[in-house]
Design a binder for these strands. Structure first.
Lengths: 228, 228
DNA sequence: CGACAGGTTGAGTGAGCTCAAGTCGGGTGG
DNA sequence: CCACCCGACTTGAGCTCACTCAACCTGTCG
């Protein structure tokens, strides 16, 4: 997961050597921009977001050190903004395939990583209740940010709300409730410690834990293949 | 999960020549199966779905003629099932890159297509109300299935509900309401005609149409680049 | 004919939204 | 230094919309 090895790789002819820096709140690229580069976070946190015609904002991901974002074709489907001060490495979108130094640097490796991120987002939005979404978000964030001890959430309540499809009020209330129940401690808005991750993951996948969906038992006949 | 696949892939030498057929309801691959092939729909409709530990089912996409699915790495993140009788072409997952016959057949073309699909799913789940989700779903489905005149929805209300994160009751009620308002006609559960797609797209992006999100006006300083 | 699955519709409930205060902390200016 | 402001966050009260529970309809299959 880490791979913050290649800090400034500084080779003369290497297209990926540039390091870009942005201050908190700055826009890295805008929704609809032509895709020229893909990015990897060196330090800091980035968010990608889609703005719908009605002004509603959907955050499609947070990206931490080592994560890749901006992996679109033609035009960026979302905008990318610096949640904190960030440093990025840049990959030319049209040359990322050439001579990858690792699987994670290859064109398809980056695409798979983007796909994984999209699935993570779907998995959050697919959950039903605020408790489920917030619990799942906390666990996922703790996992991705490293994690023993206190967790520093780099993003605001608004960002969390727009990521989970909730309002800031509900996010705030839910976190307070978790704290009251002894699942987490809140030390200021940004600092959270997970005390009982078992209960949290129980909450994340709760919804009465009834029997698995019937479709698990669908027939699975594979004998009807026709050769070409 | 299991993985009693052992598909008789019947091909002499061409990895993509095989055609597979499945009957309605059959499972094409299961969540967690090792990825050996990617697929393209020749005819019929396929759904991909994720089942969470609590039994909750999330459909991540419907795939119609020409669409690609199964584009995962290592293990399938979702299962794929035949909504109707389907015929599929098969691409060896490890050789899809070699000699693509078109952009759409290339490895990265397929990955981008999967990414687009995931974004479409996020865009549906990101909407707030049932009206917005159902309206957006109808428009998207009409667009992808071709379109003039009556639309035949191949999937059940349960499938729609699990795709939109709603219950079948709400889906049914919402469709009835659209019909009552003269936006669509319902001729049996599966046959729908869109009468007023303008009003529908208004509904899909409604939510008071207030001012765009402030983040549209965030600073955009790009001058802090450090060359290599 | 009954059984059953899929769909529709009604009544009541509750989770999360809206509206509205109120708190806290950091910055800025007098 | 304090006064003030402003943005981010928290919390309360009331309401709405989608969920739950339940009844009923329709078409299909044995």
């Amino acid at each position: 997961m880490l791979r913050l090895s290649g800090q400034p790789t500084m080779r003369a002819s290497d297209a990926t050597a540039a390091i870009l820096k942005f201050r908190k709140g700055e826009i890295i690229y805008a929704q609809g921009d032509r895709v020229t580069d893909w990015y990897r976070v060196v330090s800091g946190t980035v968010r990608t977001c889609i703005i719908y015609p009605d002004g509603h904002r959907q955050l499609t991901g947070f990206y931490y050190s080592g994560d890749v974002f901006g992996v679109d074709r033609e035009r960026h489907a979302s905008s990318a903004e610096a949640v904190t001060a960030v440093a990025l490495t840049v990959y030319r979108a049209d040359s990322a395939a050439t001579a990858p130094r690792s699987e994670a640097d290859s064109r398809s490796g980056m695409l798979h990583s983007a796909l994984n991120n999209a699935h993570a987002c779907i998995s959050l939005l697919g959950r039903r209740t605020a408790n489920e979404r917030v619990a799942a978000f906390l666990l996922a964030t703790a996992r991705r940010m490293g994690g023993r001890g206190a967790l520093t959430l780099p993003m605001s309540r608004i960002d969390i709300a727009d990521h989970l499809g909730l309002t800031i009020h509900t996010v705030s209330r839910t976190l307070s409730e978790f704290s009251r129940r002894g699942l987490i401690t809140l030390d200021g808005p940004q600092t959270i410690e997970i005390l009982d991750s078992d209960s949290l993951s129980g909450l994340a996948d709760s919804h009465d834990a009834d029997q698995p969906h019937p479709s698990c038992f669908a027939p699975r006949n594979l004998a009807t293949a026709n050769g070409a």
